[in-house]
Design a protein around this nucleic acid. Sequence first.
DNA 1: TCAGTATGCAACCATCGGTTGCGTATTGAT
DNA 2: ATCAATACGCAACCGATGGTTGCATACTGA
Lengths: 131, 131
Amino acid sequence: MSLGVPESPRRAQPREGEDELLWEAVAEPSRRRVLDLLLARGDATPTMLAAELPFTRQAVAKHLAVLTRAGLVEGHRQGREVHYSVRPERLNAAAQAMADVAARWDVRLGRIKHLAEERARAGQEEPPGPR
Amino acid sequence: MSLGVPESPRRAQPREGEDELLWEAVAEPSRRRVLDLLLARGDATPTMLAAELPFTRQAVAKHLAVLTRAGLVEGHRQGREVHYSVRPERLNAAAQAMADVAARWDVRLGRIKHLAEERARAGQEEPPGPR
DNA sequence: TCAGTATGCAACCATCGGTTGCGTATTGAT
DNA sequence: ATCAATACGCAACCGATGGTTGCATACTGA
């Protein structure tokens, strides 16, 4: 009837590392679309972007906010409108981050694949070793 | 006092493509940790994983569910416990997906960088052309 | 048989992507 | 100078989702 140990009381902490911020900014699909479009235009206002995207100006604005916080983008006010543009170095960093993660998976995968092979070969020669 | 056009009534549609599922599974940081740990262990139960992660077994379970739906992982019941393991081909696909996205950014960045240079060179030779 | 352990299920909370509604500031034509 | 139109900001609300807690159920083993 259960009643065991309270199952670990630890609570998940925010823990936002510097480039974790970068990642989470660029991992979101919609945000990538915004970023992409902005990159294509070179310079645009929220309204312009929203005009070519499947969501509202407000949504775009929020995304731009996130992107700005992550340093991927910056906007300068110009009269009644705000012009945003991409910061290439930062975007480059983001791309790098993604590539890194991908690469890391590759490595780990390669390792276990290697191990598996080795184990298979060993298995043919002698019965399964200790644990 | 405003009262302009209702600001585009279009509503965002779900739009879940096949490997969109893959991406969203692997884009989530916590999920990546689970996946990573599982990959390292080679084979583990939710409880085991939770023991080495900063969140509860339930959370881990949910993540495993998502990962399973995405085909990245599979679990076989074994008495009272369920043993999960990674499916390398699928994980490989995921890594590929990430790499692709990253690469795409690289290309686009390269393109605009190229354009910028060209524009700069042109600017030195003749005054700014027509907008 | 019965305490212990591994899962499963449901309700609940905070955050986040997205929307609507409304207010404020800048523009530009009359 | 005025005033409608336009560009943006703010706040409240909604649904999905990562995370938790609480409890029930099912296997294990002395």
